[in-house]
Amino acid sequence: MERFGTFTIFDILIKYIKEGRIRLDKSRYAGRRVTYHEPCNYARKSEATFGYGYYEEPRWILSQCVDDWVELQPNRRDQICCGGGGGTLLTGYNEERIRYGERKIRQIRQSGADLTIVPCHSCHGQIKGVKDELGMPDLEVKYLWELVADCLVMEE
């Protein structure tokens, strides 16, 4: 695989921001209470498998888009699984999966956030999928790159 270069979504977004190739407007989400959920695979599982966990990169990107965001507790290596990992969105064991989501939704509720940012398709599907049933219908869930795209300042 060394023949090729690889970028994670974090690498590429940081590169664009640091090189000044994209400009972001922090006022777009001003007044919103934002939090960040980290996926197992980018964080502790990446650390265990590849020796490096993406903990700080997404937080830096988030800080380029919004001033006021809060951490979930616990976080980073101890972050609670959203319940959508390991293919559980597709195994058909949905009752169990929704039950797992309770811890995540409680954690988000305690943070006071009304917008949760995730960089993972499974987490996105899971949190969006259980929030209504678990009593947070007004919670908004966005991809990290969706937040960045929403904050883009375009010429013209």
């Binding site: 197992c40 502790r44 599982k45 265990a48 699984c81 990992g85 390991g86 559980t88 195994t91 064991y93």
Partner: peptide, 12 residues
């Protein structure tokens, strides 16, 4: 093994 989410919290 299938209801486990393989989140790796146990491992850490």
């Amino acid at each position: 093994p299938w209801i486990c989410t393989m989140c790796g919290r146990c491992d850490s």
